[in-house]
């Protein structure tokens, strides 16, 4: 691949974006689009462009010697080779957490939407309530809850779920639990929005048409809640895949995820090209997965 070939499509698509549509919209339309366009340019396009550029610097550069643009696509190969494990671990933990969130969140959202009656809005507020404290503080509190000498471990040891020397903190269980806890509201809210919109008469209609309540759920409620399921899983999976706080505070050294690697490369190892290549890769990977997922879920209208 030539250098020009790399640069051109990048800028071409960017330039085409604001004026892409052939429809006549008049000047007002463009004026109205201006703030958003500027915002995107300044806070997405420019940083992203420079992130991609950084990822192509010669990785052996340093602040002393500077960074040379060598179109070092090899950086991408190197980071995949070196860090495929934390990459997979991130995706795996995020997928597990998303699965747990989906099950718990669906039950919760279902109960709030259909069974809570006048408590509906109070319960919703309670779901959001943890957001009023900082993400970090919430995660640190989990450190205390899951502590080796804490009541959770004591209880589980008493019940023989855990052996006398087993622990929760600094295990994958704690990391996934922390992720699931922290991102549960992102799952519950879209699910609730979807479920709340479902006309209860549709459920009545299904049982009127000989569907056992379970069958009715599967054939009517579930498909109608799919937009909520898709947006909920996306809203949970995407930040969970990039999260490193839970791994840092609740995991051990063997549970470090790709966010930790990026942080370490950028801040500790001071290796911007590698950090940038990892970031771009993570982004591309997630976008690709989301596209495949949304397409397969048959809910393209969402995007």
């Amino acid at each position: 691949m030539t250098q020009a070939a790399q640069a051109v499509p990048e800028t071409a698509t960017l330039a085409a974006e604001p004026s892409g549509s052939r429809r006549r919209r008049g000047r007002t339309g463009y004026l109205l689009m201006l703030p958003a366009t500027l915002w995107l340019l300044l806070f997405f396009v420019v940083p992203f462009y420079s992130l991609v550029a950084t990822s192509l610097f010669d990785a052996s550069g340093s602040d002393f010697r500077g960074y040379e643009m060598t179109y070092a696509w090899g950086n991408y190969v190197d980071v995949v080779e070196a860090y495929w494990q934390p990459f997979l671990r991130s995706l795996w933990y995020a997928a597990l957490a998303t699965g747990i969130c989906l099950v718990l969140g669906y039950v919760l959202a279902y109960a709030i939407a259909f069974k809570a009656g006048r408590w509906k809005w109070l319960l919703l507020v309670l779901v959001i309530a943890p957001f009023f404290t900082s993400f970090l503080v919430r995660t640190l509190s989990w450190q205390l809850i899951l502590s080796d000498e804490g009541f959770v471990v004591d209880a589980l040891q008493f019940l023989r779920v855990l052996g006398p020397d087993d622990r929760l903190l600094a295990t994958p269980v704690a990391v996934v639990a922390g992720l699931a806890y922290n991102f549960l509201p992102f799952m519950v809210l879209p699910l609730f929005a979807s479920l709340d919109k479902i006309d209860p008469r549709l459920v009545e209609a299904s049982s009127d048409l000989y569907a056992h309540p379970f069958v009715g759920f599967w054939k009517v409620t579930w498909p109608l809640s799919l937009p909520g399921v898709v947006s909920g899983t996306l809203l949970t999976f995407i930040p969970a895949a990039g999260d490193y706080i839970n791994a840092e505070f609740l995991g051990s050294t063997n549970q470090r995820v790709i966010g930790n690697v990026i942080q370490g490369q950028f801040i500790d190892a001071n290796n911007s090209p590698v950090a940038a290549a990892l970031s771009v890769l993570l982004m591309v990977l997630i976008v690709a997965m989301v596209l495949v997922y949304v397409r397969r879920a048959g809910t393209e209208e969402l995007l």
Binding site: R201, A205, S207, G216
Partner: peptide, 16 residues
């Protein structure tokens, strides 16, 4: 409901 040989045409139809 699902065990009764009875069917309903709902107000506003409740089509799926």
């Amino acid at each position: 409901a699902h065990q009764r040989p009875v069917n309903t045409v709902f107000q506003n139809y409740a089509l799926f």
